[in-house]
Design a protein around this nucleic acid. Structure first.
Lengths: 242, 242
DNA sequence: TTGTGTATCATTGTATACATCGGAACAGAT
DNA sequence: ATCTGTTCCGATGTATACAATGATACACAA
C-alpha cells in the first residue's frame, strides 16, 4: 500500500478541527444533539475552547456525512432520519455487506479469521448469559472484521459510514435475547462460508443477515424508540422479504 | 417531501465557498488538476478572487468526497485513482444499480418512463450515426433517470457520486461503436423490464450491464488512457465474470 | 563525501475583525 | 385583528492577522 492509498479518511485526528469534528459526530450519534436541533458555531466553539474557524470546517464535513444540514445564512441543524431512510440504508447495506462477504472470502487473513471465530464463540457465550453490552460490542466487531477483511478501502469506508449512521436508531436492536441467538447463528454460518471459501454462499448469507436484522428491528418497533424517527412520517414499517 | 428530507447535498451553490467547491471539483474531474498534484489554498483563492477561508472549507468537503487528500500541516493533494479503485467502484455500483433498478421498477413515474423510452430511441439513432458526444450524454442521462426514479435520495446521492467519480477515468469508454450498440441493447432490455414491472429481472440486468461496461473498459485498456491510473499499480486488469 | 544541526520561509492551522443575511419584535396603517 | 414595513440584533459568510509546522538550503564538522 503506497501513501496515496489512504482514501476517504478524515486524515487529521489531532488538530482542533479533527477533535471538534469527532466530538460533534459522537454527540449526534449518541443522541446528545437531538434531531432538527440547531447547532451554533460560537456555542460549540466555546464549549470546546476553540474559535469558529475549526467548528465551521467540521460543520462542512458533517454536512457531507449527512449528519447535519446547513442552510445558508441560517444555521446548521441535526439531520432527521426518517423510517424510510433507515429502510433504504438497510437495503443498501444488504447488498454491500453481501459484496463485502464475497470479497472477504477471497482476501481474509488467517488472523482475521481467527478473530472472527473467537468473536462468534464469545458472542454465543454472552448470549447465553444475557450480557447485552458485550453482545452489541461483539456484533459490531464482527461486521468490522469483515469490512477489514474484504480488502477494499472504498467498500470498507462506505460500510463503516452506514454502520455508524444507523447506530443512532439501532442502539437497542439486539436487546432481545432471541434475536441475538438468531444473529449469532447467522454470524456462524457466514463465517463458515467464508472459511470454506464459498463466496456465493457468503454473499447470500450476509445479504440475508442484514434483511433479517432490519425486519427484526421493524417487528419490535424500535425505530420509534428514538423519538420521532418515524413519528413524522406517514410511512408504515413494512417488513421486507426482498 | 418535507424540508428535512434534502440530505447529503451541498446546500449552498451560490456562496463563494459553494462556487469554489464546484470549481475545484470540476477541475479535478475534468483532469485540469492531475493526480497527486498539490493544491495550494492561496493560489486557488487568488485564481478565484477569494480568501483562504472558503477555499479551506471547500477542501474539507472535497476530502470527504475522496477527490483530494489532506495531509495535516502539509497540503492537499489530488487523490490518485488506482485500477483497483475503479474495479471496486464498478463492483459496488453493479450492486447498487441493481437495487436502484429494482426500486425504480416500483416507483418510476409515467414521465420518467417516457423520457427513458425516448432516451433509448435516440441513443440507437445516434449509435447508428456514430455521434459519440450524444451517445455519451444519453448514456449518462439514462442512468440518472433511473437514479431519480428509484425514489431514494440516499441511493440516488450515492450513485450520482460514484458516477461522477469514475468519469475521470471513464471518459472515452463508449468510444467504440460496438460497445455503444451493445450498451443500447442492454438499456432497452432494462427499460422493458422496468416497464413490465419485473423487478427481479431489472435488478439482474442493471447488475450485468455494469459488469459488462467494466469488462469492456478493461478489455480496451482505457484505464491507461488517463495517465497513471494503473501504471503505478502492479495489478493487472482481470475481467470479471462475477 | 556524508551527515547533522540550524536558519529560513512557504504553507497550513487558528483566532479575530468586519460584512452581510435574515428572523423577531415592534409600530403604524388598514 | 391582521397586515406591512422598519429597526434591531444574533448568527453566519468572508477576509485578514497571527501562530505553528515542516520542507529546504546551507554551513560546518566528521
Amino acid at each position: 500500500m503506497n501513501e496515496y492509498d489512504v482514501k476517504n479518511e478524515v486524515s487529521d485526528k489531532y488538530s482542533l478541527r479533527g477533535r471538534v469534528f469527532s466530538k460533534i459526530r459522537e454527540d449526534i450519534l449518541s443522541g446528545k444533539y437531538k434531531e432538527h436541533e440547531e447547532l451554533k458555531e460560537v456555542a460549540i466553539g466555546e464549549e470546546m475552547g476553540v474559535s469558529r474557524t475549526p467548528v465551521r470546517e467540521a460543520f462542512r464535513q458533517l454536512e457531507l456525512e449527512g449528519l447535519i444540514q446547513i442552510i445558508p445564512n441560517r444555521g446548521a441543524y441535526v439531520t432527521g432520519i426518517s423510517a424510510k431512510d433507515v429502510r433504504d440504508i438497510y437495503m443498501i447495506r444488504s447488498r454491500l455487506e453481501g459484496l463485502c462477504a464475497r470479497w472477504a472470502t477471497a482476501n481474509i487473513t488467517k488472523e482475521q479469521l481467527d478473530e472472527m471465530e473467537e468473536n462468534v464463540y464469545l458472542a454465543e457465550f454472552h448470549a447465553g448469559k444475557g450480557h447485552l453490552d458485550q453482545i452489541t460490542e461483539l456484533d459490531n466487531r464482527f461486521h468490522h472484521i469483515m469490512y477489514e477483511a474484504c480488502n477494499s478501502k472504498m467498500l470498507e469506508h462506505l460500510l463503516v459510514d452506514y454502520h455508524q449512521y444507523v447506530q443512532r436508531v439501532r442502539q437497542k436492536t439486539l436487546s432481545t435475547v432471541n434475536r441475538s441467538t438468531e444473529s449469532n447463528k447467522e454470524h456462524r454460518a457466514l463465517m463458515e462460508a467464508i472459511k470454506a471459501g464459498n463466496a456465493d454462499l457468503a454473499e447470500k448469507l450476509a445479504h440475508e443477515h442484514m434483511i433479517k436484522a432490519y425486519n427484526n428491528m421493524v417487528k419490535n418497533g424500535l425505530l420509534d424508540a428514538t423519538g420521532n424517527s418515524s413519528g413524522d412520517e406517514s410511512m408504515d414499517h413494512p417488513e421486507i422479504e426482498d
